[in-house]
Nucleic acid binder design. Structure first.
Lengths: 222, 222
DNA sequence: AATAATCTTGAACGACTGTTCAATCCCCGT
DNA sequence: ACGGGGATTGAACAGTCGTTCAAGATTATT
C-alpha cells in the first residue's frame, strides 16, 4: 500500500507557486510595502488562496525563511566542522570566514537567487523584525557557533573583539546582497555586485587579513 | 531696511517639528510603511500640513536627507583633505578609512542620532530607492572621492580590488547603524552596537589591516 | 485700518490594505 | 456511482493609505 498521497500536481503547485512568487515581491518591496495582491497576481491565483495556505501574510513571509534558511545553515555548520578539523589556527581563520560567507552566496544556484538575500538584509534592517523573531529563531544559533569558532582562532581576544569582528564580517557580506546597481554606477560598469564568486573572493581576502593583522593596542584592554 | 522676514516662531516651528518627528518614524517603519498620519501625530499637527510644507510624503523624506547629508559629506571631505596631506601611503590608509567611517558615527551628537543612520541603511537596501535617486544625488560624489583616495593608497591595485575594498568597508559600517539589539543578544549583553565610539575603534582596526595585508594572489590578475 | 499673503485646520476623496466568507470545484476512496 | 474533504474562487468586509479642498486663523504689507 502506497502512503496516502494527496492530489500531487495542482495542489503542491499552487502553494509552491505562491511561495515562489512571493520571494521577488518581498525582496523588492519589503514586508510592509509588499501586498498580498501583488503576490497573488504574480502567482496567478486569487488573493484568498494565500490566507488559506499560509494563514496570513506573515505566515507566508515566514514560510519563505523556513524554506530557505536550513540549506544555508547546514552549509555553515558543515564549513565549521571542516574548520575545526584544521589544527593550525592561522589557517583555520580562512575556513571560518568562508564558512560564514560562501553558503550565503551559493544561493545563486537556485532560481530566485538574489531575492532571498535581499529579503534577509531588509529583515535585518527592519526594527519591526524583532516582533517577527525570525532571526532569533533561525539565524542566531549558527551565529553563536560562528562567534565561538572565531574565539577559538584567537584565544587571547576579548569578547568585544570577537563580536565586533563577527559583525564587521556580517556587514561586509550584507552590502553585496543589498546592491541595486550602485557598485556598477560608481565604477562605470567595471565592477558588478552580482558576480558573487568574485565578491566572495575579494571580501574573504580583506576580512581574513583584517582578523589576522588587526592592531589590538586600542581594543585589547577590556 | 531689514531683509523681509516671515513670521519666525510658529512657522519655522511647525515645519521643523514635522521634520524632526518624521525621522524616527521613517527609521522605524521605512519609507513605504511609514504613514503621514503617524508622522503628523508625532509632530502634533494635522495631516494636511505635511503636504502643504513638503508637497508630498516623498518630499518630506527627501527633506530629511537634504538636512542631514551635507554635514556628513563635509566631514568626509575634510577627512580626505587631511589624508591627502599625509605623504606616507601606509599611514594614509588609516586616515582614509576614518574619513569614511567617523563622520557617519558622529551623528550621535545630534538629537535623533541613530535614526538617520537607520534611514540610510533602509534606503540603501530598498530597490525602490533607485526611483528616488537620493544616493545618486547626495552620496555618490563623495563616494567617488573615497574610492579614488583608496586607489591612491594602493597604486598597483586593480579597479575591482579598489571598489570591492570600498564596498566591504561600507557594508561593515552599515551593519552597526542597522543593529536592533541583535549584538547584545548574541553576546549576552556584553557588547552594545550603540556604543559607536567602540564600534568605530574595532571596525577601523579590522578594515585598515584588511586593506594593508590582504592576499592579492587570487584577485590581482584582471 | 484694510488688504494681501501665508499658515493652519478638519473633513472628505478614491484607491488600496489584509482578511473572511459562503459557494463551487475537483479528485480520491469506497 | 457516489459521497466527502481539501482546494479554489470571487465578492465583500472594515480599515487605512496619500492627497486635496474650502474654510478659517494668523501675520505682513500698504
Amino acid at each position: 500500500m502506497k502512503p496516502m498521497k494527496k492530489r500531487v500536481e495542482p495542489t503542491e503547485s499552487a502553494k509552491a507557486r505562491i511561495l515562489a512568487a512571493a520571494e521577488p515581491v518581498f525582496a523588492e518591496w519589503g514586508f510592509d510595502a509588499a501586498t498580498v495582491r501583488k503576490i497573488s497576481e504574480a502567482a496567478g491565483v486569487p488573493v484568498a488562496l494565500i490566507n488559506y495556505h499560509f494563514g496570513s501574510k506573515q505566515g507566508l513571509y515566514r514560510a519563505i525563511f523556513e524554506k530557505r534558511t536550513p540549506t544555508i545553515m547546514d552549509q555553515r555548520i558543515a564549513g565549521l566542522r571542516l574548520a575545526r578539523a584544521e589544527p593550525d589556527l592561522d589557517r583555520r581563520v580562512d575556513l571560518v570566514v568562508k564558512a560564514l560567507i560562501y553558503p550565503m552566496f551559493s544561493l545563486r544556484g537556485e532560481s530566485p537567487s538574489a531575492d532571498f538575500g535581499r529579503i534577509i538584509v531588509r529583515e535585518m534592517s527592519d526594527p519591526q523584525s524583532e516582533t517577527r523573531g525570525i532571526f532569533r529563531d533561525m539565524f542566531d544559533p549558527v551565529a553563536q557557533m560562528l562567534t565561538e569558532a572565531i574565539a577559538e582562532c584567537f584565544p587571547d581576544w576579548t569578547t568585544k573583539e570577537v563580536h565586533w569582528a563577527y559583525h564587521t564580517m556580517l556587514g561586509a557580506m550584507t552590502i553585496v546582497m543589498t546592491d541595486n546597481g550602485r557598485m556598477a554606477r560608481l565604477s562605470d560598469g567595471e565592477v558588478r555586485a552580482d558576480d558573487w564568486e568574485e565578491a566572495a573572493l575579494h571580501m574573504c581576502a580583506i576580512l581574513v587579513a583584517g582578523l589576522k593583522h588587526r592592531d589590538r593596542t586600542l581594543t585589547r584592554g577590556n
